[in-house]
Design a protein around this nucleic acid. Structure first.
Lengths: 197, 197
DNA sequence: GAGGTTAATAACCGATCGGTTAGTTATCAA
DNA sequence: TTGATAACTAACCGATCGGTTATTAACCTC
């Protein structure tokens, strides 16, 4: 009942994600948002409550839309060392393909908001824990499959992979040349193989 | 001639650096700045021209004040593998010591400004090049001293170290526990040693 | 087709933003 | 002591910020 919405929430979140991803939270104005999102000012506030409410929704949208896709393979029960390699190589291809430099919205959110916003900080910790767990899962499954030496401490190694990956996300955001990303990925991959049985 | 300044430029830059470092460029207001810097509004604009002028000066101040200290050892002609290890361990101790999470102002600047600001992007590339070169210098000096295998590609390895280090800076900014940073540093150090002759 | 309901429109709000201007105060040289 | 210079104070500026408030338009049910 009532007038139907002239927008689709998912489409709006896509556009909001793009804007916040590129420019960050503070530098994105509500005017820009209403101009690009396909909904009017009033609907923005009735649907999302506030600029920050929209940002948080866009960030969750990003997690579903991108992180699930990128980290997903490492989180499967069948994950292996090659899935870690795939992740690193994926970001090299992103660097090679992309024009604009957006990096990772979640990493951007950490840097911009985590130190001064308790909600963002919690989201950051959830994300970092997820990433480390994903790497760890792939390592442990790989070890169970006999790919890795039994002596490797998967939790520690996972933290190392996660940190290198985070660094790549910053390099991506800086617009570093793809060759740099490739160097990092190559070394990360060869490090992973050095853990092999 | 004329009335003497009631502030010292270096003191002002220290305070501006702290504020911009913690909160970023956009979220720091000129009111906050004049409240904490020990100079008045008018002097801020005659001395630095604009909010952005002050930010850029504060960022250069950060480079002198912190990056020179942290990267300096790796840039010496006598730099060795142990200087790389020292850098990684240094950031673990920062994580263990610190209450607030500021990370690295330069890394924060990359994430916040590089994609939408050509000046910031140039600064980012200068910084990243400096970091990679520092690692590379330590590696090549180490190799010349017989510490490293002659087969290692110092440029590629340096990019890898730099990325892992960048990741640590993000972890620091997220307020990750010191143990996480320690895991990363330990693995980075042991990776460095795996390059030994 | 009338009444109820909800979204779209657009004018509007106080607050705060980065930045400027007018006038006062402190120092120097002569 | 006076005049030039430069930094101080503080009031002020238009623009823009995030958010709200009527009012109108589009849909449903009965």
């Amino acid at each position: 009942m009532g007038r139907p919405k002239g927008y689709e929430r998912d489409t709006v979140l896509d556009a909001a994600m793009e804007l916040f991803w590129l420019k960050g939270f503070e530098a994105t104005t509500t005017r820009e948002l209403v101009d690009h999102l396909g909904l009017n000012r009033n609907s923005l506030y009735t649907e999302f409550g506030s600029k920050r409410g929209l940002y948080d929704a866009a960030l969750r949208h990003y997690e579903r839309r991108w992180l699930d896709r990128n980290l997903g393979p490492l989180e499967r029960a069948e994950a292996r060392l090659e899935d870690i390699e795939g992740l690193f190589h994926h970001y090299v291809s992103v660097a090679r393909r992309t024009g604009t430099q957006k990096g990772c919205m979640m990493a951007n959110s950490i840097v911009e908001l985590a130190p001064v916003d308790v909600v963002a900080k919690q989201g950051a910790h959830r994300f970092l824990e997820r990433a480390r767990t994903a790497f760890q899962n792939a390592l442990e499954n790989g070890r169970a499959a006999g790919e890795l030496r039994s002596s490797v401490d998967s939790r520690t190694e996972a933290a190392f992979f996660a940190s290198t990956w985070l660094g790549m996300l910053v390099l991506l955001r800086a617009g570093s040349p793809a060759e740099t990303l490739e160097s990092v990925a190559d070394r990360a991959v060869s490090y992973g193989r050095s853990l092999a049985a």
